[in-house]
Design a protein around this nucleic acid. Structure first.
Length: 588
DNA sequence: GCCGTTTTCGGCCCGACTGTTTTCAGTCG
């Protein structure tokens, strides 16, 4: 509703308000708590705490929550009754053009638009033309099947392929991936590539001529945009070497992060754009990102943190760089309110993996095959955590078979040692949490295992309080070390079950239970906000592959990215620790 | 309509590309 009000106001040429509504809409969409819960907890005042939401928008949210509708939104829609979310998905259609199409041709939705385009009516409109009509026809096809985002882990191999290929062009001096891919978002909308070249035209030509390109959205001297056969949209921008850092920063985003940097630049009497940081006509910085942040009086900020969620403040350098306002800085220092930036866990810091399935249940590799693959992937230990009997469809292990499996794990360890490999396989379980919070295997069995993970695979629809109690009871079990994929979501398929995350975090802390970051590209569960919350609450985490085949250890990269987006350090991730230290932290 | 390392009033990020236009508006990121 907020987004639509913004679009409608934009349509009418109202200044500034559209951005205010858009920002508020984004803020509400990215809340970790339901707006309704916030309101029933703290009323209007609590809503106003949401960044970008002030008195007026808070009232509109209240109105929507209590009456189910909002008078201003209804009035605006009455004036221009169009399906905004549908029409604005069409490439090149913004609020102004949507308005013209409605006023002149009564276009209300995609079906109307298609009919008008087929009749040739659009080409005759002022401000449109033959070409506009053609473009609308083309993008109608894609708009129909939504502009869905794609999961990072699925797109990454393809992105790396394009990156490697374009990098080899003779005219290309450098080429990197920027945008949401560089920030390692869970899902990405498009791919932003940045190149340095003295012959941009050659780079543009080669880019749009790639065999996978199915359509060219734009082609200029330094910027082109294409769609490739897989459906990915790829943008390529070329800048001179002297602007590389500023351009990389600019195209990495996020938008909010960039806007904040520009404001800092303005406050210093400087101007920041994709070509550099400028004092008048003189470039002060821009060749590298490091020098750019430094010139702004900031520490370097890792791409995964650039979401304007506190990293800017944390990166601002101490007093010597903030000239003329010593008293303010000292005040803050005294209050200890500069949290500082975290030293993020590195992409090579994992030593183990605590959730691995084998061919004893629904996995595709033997215990030994999984162990050898994990070692190839750079790990020193894994826990075998096959499903428990409750998950009958996976042939889940009962008491008898899990005892047999423990014996097999011991034999595998011996064989590995015999062949001189320094690698340890731990016994474990992904034990089902039953409806009432009891576990699917008896305590005397769980006590024998090295690592016990517990997870929810049934009754996703329990009321929030009951679901929370269920998982808390599992944490109370003296053998349950880790809660696997704690919210149960599958990106693009299944929402998380209703559960009180802050309560789970507190209970995890009190019971010494670890929470998992499942690295599967469509799980990434916990998500970044909850990771930050857990760390703040003093809870330790584990990054696991949830591997079901030897090749699956490669997904750990996405789990690490997720952890980094949640501000996690090495000390927060127990499987980044040496084996003995990690084992020492588990419940007895 | 929102917000405050410049402000409670007066600002609000910035540039490339397209398609229409004959100097620019709209869209996009």
């Amino acid at each position: 509703m907020l987004r639509e009000i913004g679009l409608y106001l934009d349509m009418q040429g109202v200044a500034f308000k559209p951005r205010a509504y858009e920002k508020a809409a984004e803020a509400v969409a990215s809340l970790t708590e339901e707006a309704g819960d916030i309101y029933s907890r703290g009323g209007l005042r609590a809503l106003e705490e949401i960044p970008g939401v002030g008195a007026s928008i808070a009232e509109k949210i209240e109105e929507l929550l209590t009456t189910g509708t909002c008078a201003e939104h209804v009035a605006l829609r009455k004036k221009t009754p169009v399906n905004l979310s549908e029409l604005s998905r069409v490439e090149g259609l913004g609020p102004k053009k949507i308005k013209t199409l409605y006023q002149k041709l009564r276009v209300k939705d995609l079906a109307d638009l298609e009919a008008a385009a087929k009749k040739g009516a659009i080409a005759k409109l002022e401000g449109f033309g033959k070409k506009s009509e053609e473009n609308i026809k083309k993008s109608l096809e894609f708009a129909k099947h939504a502009g869905d985002r794609v999961m990072l882990g699925l797109a990454m191999p393809e992105i790396r392929m394009y990156e490697a290929r374009l990098r080899k062009l003779p005219a290309v001096a450098r080429l990197v991936v920027a945008g949401s891919v560089r920030r390692r978002k869970e899902t990405i909308g498009d791919v932003d590539l940045l190149a340095v070249s003295k012959k941009p035209q050659q780079v543009m030509d080669a880019f749009v001529a790639m065999p996978e390109v199915v359509s060219v959205h734009a082609k200029g001297e330094t910027k082109s945009a294409v769609k490739v056969v897989s459906g990915l949209n790829i943008d390529l921008r070329v800048v001179p070497e002297s602007s590389y850092g500023a351009a990389l920063n600019y195209f990495t985003g996020s938008k909010d992060h960039n806007v904040a940097l520009r404001q800092i630049a303005m406050n210093k009497g400087l101007k920041l754009n994709e070509y550099g940081l400028w004092k008048g006509k003189k470039q002060v910085a821009g060749k590298t990102e490091e020098e750019l942040y430094k010139a702004l009086g900031m520490h370097y900020i890792e791409p995964e943190l650039r979401e304007h969620t506190g990293e800017i403040k944390a990166a601002l350098r101490p007093i010597q760089d903030i000239q003329g306002r010593p008293e303010e800085f000292e005040g803050r220092q005294a209050q200890g309110k500069r949290p500082g930036l975290p030293t993020l866990i590195g992409y090579k810091d994992l030593r183990g993996d605590l959730q691995v399935q084998t061919d004893w249940t629904d996995g595709k590799g033997s215990i030994e095959a999984m162990a050898r693959a994990a070692r190839e992937a750079g790990l020193e230990y894994i826990a075998i955590t096959d499903h428990s009997k409750r998950l009958a469809m996976t042939h889940g292990l009962d008491e008898k078979r899990i005892i047999q499996q423990m014996a097999e794990i011991a034999r595998v360890n011996k064989r590995l040692q015999g062949s001189g490999l320094r690698f340890r396989v731990l016994s474990g379980s992904e034990c089902d949490i039953l409806k009432d919070g009891a576990l699917d295997l008896p305590d005397n069995i769980l006590a024998k295992l090295d690592v016990v993970g517990a997870s929810v695979h049934s009754y996703f629809n329990l009321p929030k309080a009951e679901q929370t109690k269920r998982i808390m009871r599992a944490m109370d079990n003296p053998h349950v070390d880790i809660i696997f994929h704690p919210t149960g979501r599958i990106i693009g398929k299944r929402p998380p079950y209703e559960v009180d995350i802050p309560a789970l975090i507190t209970h995890a802390k009190n019971t010494g239970t670890i929470l998992e970051i499942d690295a599967l590209p469509d799980r990434l569960d916990l998500k970044d906000d909850y990771i930050r919350m857990a760390i703040k609450g003093g809870v330790k985490l584990a990054i696991d592959s949830d591997a079901h085949a030897p090749s699956h250890f490669s997904v750990l990269e996405y789990g690490i990215a997720q952890a980094r987006r949640g501000w996690a350090e090495k000390k927060d991730i127990i499987n980044a620790w040496p084996l003995e230290k990690m084992k020492g932290f588990l419940k007895k």
